[in-house]
Write a protein that binds this DNA or RNA. Structure first.
Lengths: 341, 341
DNA sequence: AAAATCATGAAGAAAGGGCATCAGGTTACT
DNA sequence: AGTAACCTGATGCCCTTTCTTCATGATTTT
């Protein structure tokens, strides 16, 4: 299958008996051209349905006006929202977006970076995969002076701008809420321990406990690999615990939903037996029965801020010094945590 | 913010004292080069961390190995799945993907096409916006011989390949299921009437009714604008109907979820008072209470097939004659339709 | 008043950006 | 001399931009 022919400046020039440079000038409305000539050219360009070849243009001015985005997975509602925010605001400022998903694999992540760089994107927005535990690929980007920002899943040490949620704060909000509901034996179900959000949310969880004079109990911190099987295993373990916990705070909503579903199948009542809470405010969480208490993270907003800051840096509207933008989360209390004692 | 320097063939050539063309040959492993020279060059390229400039390459061979994708919205789980399928299989075949969302606006859709074409994508995959009611932009693509395929939301007349679900078949499955459950007064909640899927699903709905000797009753076909307000309005209307329907089939899951949520708030029991069914099998539908009977449409599969066929055409592995791929749906019966009479 | 100079406006020529490739050109060997 | 084997130069892809050229009419000079 072949692509049809594209009109080039050369052709317009030939048709009008002028030089290519004149066409170029006319199309960028240069002042050093006779208005009449300009008019004629613009008209002809329109008539011939001329579309500038962005490729050639980019090669010439060595800017593609394209951004690369890497997310762990597109099908996650949260990341889809981020992408949406990035898209909209990039477009608004005349930039295109190439999106890749790492599928939570570090190798994919590295490969994605490579292709995006080869495609000459002007900058990158990256959210790290779950697997990412070394960061050479990021440092290479850094040393090659390719601008990028990290969002949500970040690596703290590297000196580039980052956009994150106040994860510790959000976890604190939830835990505090559970404590206010009268719960005192609160389990935290974490993801893999080296994940940025695992750590941060644990921090907030512990801080709230400390404020209530409860000291950390390692038994009450469960780790899931975040697969459905892993989540169910944790749900089972919790049932065996002694003393029996009265509340469970899951690092992300899907874990809470899996736990809830499993427990429901076993006839265990939420919130009567266990108060339950998640994090992220997925659409699903609003409609499960009982509706899930959670923390909302506006993904669209995050994408918007990340891309806006990046473009500000690119366009020289902001300093190149890395900054850290931290977005606040809001507690969304729902029935799953309404434990009446 | 400036981008760091990129190593070019010229520089390798200079360093090694050979010509640029030799570099080019070495890097594509041409046979007419001394193995030793080749080895040296490849080594040096690696050492200097040479990355070919895809832009220049594309300009030269006038193929970008990039596909453009336009979907109504990324945050919809179904379209996100399609994108995921497209991504994975495009990458597998050495293609990159640029994604745009039309936000259900025809103007955005047209603008998206324009930028993607200007970016010299090799081909497009498009799912039309809800607003799209004229098709000049598609015919223009067609006449400019830019390859593209339509998926899910298609325009039937245009002679390009299309990938769709058997929407009529799926609607037939649901309606048939509701009939088997003993329902006889089944409401169909449709989206805007000129939408492809509105029409197709209505077809299947009517076909099933006919088989049961029930004749079409326009009163039983409700139209929603698919906003939450619109959906709730329909939910209210249904409560006023006389005779009272015993089942409701919604064109897409979100409508069913809105109706369910509204009814629950009014103390109306599903499936006891009304059997309820949707279409698409969103993740949400599995976890609402009661779980929603629906029809599953594998989005990932759709994306995969669409892109595979397109690339087959592009690479000359498939004929350029347009074909229509129709994917089967499967009924997912859940509690919301278990009406015991 | 005629000639020389200059300023200005308008458009062309050409280079350059990185790569691929056709058509030649050097060697070294038979 | 003929022929491989190996390498190079030039050109083109499409666009931007700097440098030049060429008129034209205004200003100055003689």
């Amino acid at each position: 299958m072949k692509k049809g022919h594209q009109v080039t400046m050369k052709e317009i020039a030939k048709k009008l008996g002028v030089s290519v440079s004149t066409i170029s000038r006319a199309l960028k409305d240069s002042p050093e051209l006779h208005p009449e000539t300009k008019r004629k050219i613009v008209e002809m360009a329109k008539e011939m349905n001329y579309q500038p070849n962005l490729l050639a243009q980019s090669l010439r001015i060595s800017r593609t006006k394209t951004l690369g985005v890497i997310v762990p997975e597109i099908t996650s509602h949260f990341f889809a929202s981020c992408i949406s925010g990035i898209q909209d605001h990039a477009n608004k400022r005349g930039y295109n977006v190439m999106i890749c998903q790492s599928n939570e694999s570090i190798d994919q992540e590295i490969a994605n970076i490579k292709t995006l760089v080869a495609s000459q994107v002007d900058a990158l927005l990256i959210s790290l995969s779950r697997e990412t535990n070394h960061y050479e690929h990021l440092y290479e980007l850094y040393s090659r002076e390719i601008p990028f920002v990290l969002f949500d899943r970040v690596h703290e040490e590297i000196p580039v701008s980052k956009v994150t949620f106040n994860d510790a704060g959000g976890a604190y909000q939830v835990t505090h809420h559970l404590l206010e509901m009268g719960c005192r034996n609160i389990v935290y179900v974490s993801g893999p321990e080296d994940l940025y959000i695992s750590k941060k949310r644990k921090e907030g969880y512990l801080k709230a406990l400390t404020e209530y004079g409860i000291k950390e109990n390692p038994e009450f911190i469960k780790i899931s690999d975040l697969t459905e099987d892993g989540n169910i295993r944790v749900a089972q373990e919790i049932l065996q615990m002694n003393p029996k916990p009265d509340a469970v705070f899951c690092m992300i909503d899907p874990v809470a939903v899996d736990v809830l579903t499993y427990w429901k199948s076993k006839g265990i009542k939420v919130p009567e037996e266990f108060a339950l809470a998640g994090f992220t405010n997925n659409p699903t969480s609003a409609v499960v029965e009982p509706p899930l208490t959670t923390v909302s993270q506006p993904g669209y907003e995050m994408g918007k801020l990340a891309v806006s800051h990046l473009l500000d840096q690119l366009d020289g509207l902001a300093s190149d010094d890395p900054i850290s933008i931290v977005l606040d989360t809001t507690l969304v209390p729902r029935k799953s945590s309404q434990k009446t004692i």
